[in-house]
């Protein structure tokens, strides 16, 4: 019954001290992201209000229900400041729902569902089917080293089209793209935050947040 831990733990290379990273805390598994980021040495702010965006060097958009995040972000006046921050170069990492929020185009979204955009991709929401089709598997992601990434896909989206400005970082065996980067934006269909896999967050902090500061 115990969940097998396959994590890599906090890695050897240090994250520069003093980084301030926000985690969008409207809904979803934001505490798990906050925990990973803190263990890697970042200062973490939970973000629910526009003014909470002011002080941060980077932002994580967690897993959860993208349509709910979209509604709350718009209702509480966060959507436009977030779009402006992304346009202004704020490093952002999104997992699952967070990836959907960062996509320029959402396929199979709700009536009127909006994303923040930024990634030149089209993402299909819930691309695998009902929960019984959710799965975990190992992915080879050269950008993160030779050790495969253990990835958990939960009613997950896939990146159906990778536009010319975005780069695929990982694909399933059938070729479907499940991780992308474009400049300061990073997105994964899966959830490193719940598997003890620290390398994505570390990559985000070192290569994107620290570099942009």
């Amino acid at each position: 019954m115990a969940i097998l831990s396959v994590g890599t733990g906090p890695a050897e290379t240090a994250v520069p001290p003093g980084l301030r990273v926000g985690v969008l805390a409207l809904q979803g598994d934001f505490r798990e992201h906050a925990q990973v980021l803190r263990e890697l040495g970042a200062n973490v702010d939970l973000v629910r209000r526009p003014e909470e965006l002011d002080q941060i060097d980077g932002l994580v958009i967690p897993g959860g229900e993208s349509s709910v995040m979209d509604k709350l972000a718009r209702t509480f006046g966060l959507a436009e400041p977030l779009r402006a921050a992304i346009r202004g170069g704020l490093p952002v990492y999104g997992t699952c729902a967070g990836l959907i929020m960062l996509a320029d185009t959402i396929l199979d979204g709700m009536n009127g569902q909006q994303s923040l955009g930024g990634l030149d991709i089209a993402v299909r929401r819930n691309a695998f089917g009902p929960q019984t089709a959710s799965f975990e598997t190992d992915l080879d992601i050269p950008a993160l080293g030779v050790k495969p990434v253990h990835a958990v896909f939960i009613r997950a989206p896939v990146v159906e089209t990778v536009g010319p400005r975005a780069t695929a970082l990982a694909t399933l065996d059938d070729g479907r793209c499940v991780a992308v980067q474009q400049g300061n934006l990073l997105g994964t269909s899966f959830h490193p935050e719940i598997t003890g896999e620290y390398r994505f967050h570390q990559y985000f902090l070192q290569k994107l947040v620290a570099a942009a500061r």
């Binding site: 409207l26 959860g64 089709a133 959710s134 009613r155």
Partner: peptide, 19 residues
Amino acid sequence: EQFGSSRVKRGLAEMLKGG
């Protein structure tokens, strides 16, 4: 690929948090 593991089952509930 592994379906229906504890992590996958519990994981969906994790994503519903705050909802």
